[in-house]
Write a protein that binds this DNA or RNA. Structure first.
Lengths: 195, 195
DNA sequence: GTCTATAAGCTGATAGAC
DNA sequence: GTCTATCAGCTTATAGAC
């Protein structure tokens, strides 16, 4: 990957973020050096600082971009006539969106503690926005009488935790197709919150 | 915490592991140095190597001790007459055991990738033993006709993922008591696997 | 925009004095 | 069993040549 001198501002930036994404996901933010990232891209370490002020900003940008994409995609979902349909849609969306970005998802919740307090607060706010979308569905379902929950906030966190569990074991080409996984989880979520 | 010379083999070892536990849980294995651990204990860095051959072994021992305690406690649970009672007991046990050891639990699943392949395989085997205990309950319940699951293995992982979610938000002295938390989760788990 | 060279400091681990 | 001193190598980030 060693390269000679030249000007590549358009492509080096994305390549740096992609290399950081792979390496952070695999070895963890703290265990990865700027030199490793540079080597993966094929530049010297000093060149990275034309694209990021420091290592922390690299991590923050990866996490912020991911959370903003997640929120934008969730907000773009078609509205549904009833809470049950909305929940089914949310479960399917959540599983598929996260399965398509396993590295971003892994980083987004493994590396929270490596953010500065300021950056952490911003990522947390985005995460709460996303949780609130699900909580809104659950509360609406309670009002409709189709869901029965002892505590809507905990139910929200429990559903997300259950769905995120997929990431720890699912591998494309394994025993189950994505459609099957989606059906299995939907069955459990539906029953868990049912009246 | 600075100390003068002396012989303390009986207490220094546990103190080192406790310091490593706190620091690894807070900052992550890769971000914590042997000097930081030594400073927390009140010895010089070189002294640590009387108790551990290296940093990796310190992490491995913390994780192995935790998993073995978890398995021993789970195996010591009184046997139940029916799968529903066994599942209720398992849910209560899991929540309470994990809430009492938030740092060990956090390390046990955040630092898996920092284990050597050999150590990782051993911890994974213990984790699988624990999952198998829950899976046995779910399969027994299916045979009894009280549970209905599309896939027992995924249901096992989903229930554990949901319960582990407690760790991310529960704080002692918060809005809910441990008993309430237990009841809320039991309600959702029970319904999720119900026939 | 990338390079080389460097600053200033930290890392895990070891050797030998006491 | 703990200390001090040390090794060899790594770290993030910057300065200045090209």
């Amino acid at each position: 990957m060693a390269r000679t001198q030249g000007s590549h501002s358009d492509i080096t930036g994305p390549r740096i973020r992609k290399a950081a994404l792979h390496l952070f996901a695999r070895y963890g933010y703290a265990a990865v050096s700027m030199r490793q990232i540079a080597a993966e891209v094929g530049v010297q370490a000093g060149a990275l600082y034309n694209y990021t002020p420091d290592k922390q900003s690299l991590l923050y940008r990866l996490m912020r971009d991911h959370m903003e994409e997640l929120l934008a995609a969730q907000k773009a979902l078609p509205s549904q006539d009833c809470a049950l349909d909305a929940l089914r849609q949310f479960v399917g969306f959540h599983i598929r969106f996260h399965m398509q970005r396993p590295e971003e998802v892994f980083i987004a919740y493994m590396e929270l503690r490596n953010l500065t307090p300021e950056n952490f607060a911003e990522i947390e706010a985005l995460r709460r926005d996303y949780e609130d979308a699900l909580q809104g569905i659950l509360v609406a379902g309670q009002a409709e009488g189709v869901f029965a929950l002892q505590d809507a906030k905990i139910a929200t966190l429990a559903v997300i935790a259950m769905l995120n569990g997929v990431m720890t074991w699912y591998r494309a080409g394994g025993r189950l197709s994505l459609d099957q996984v989606e059906r299995i989880y939907w069955d459990m979520v539906r029953k868990a919150v049912a009246a």
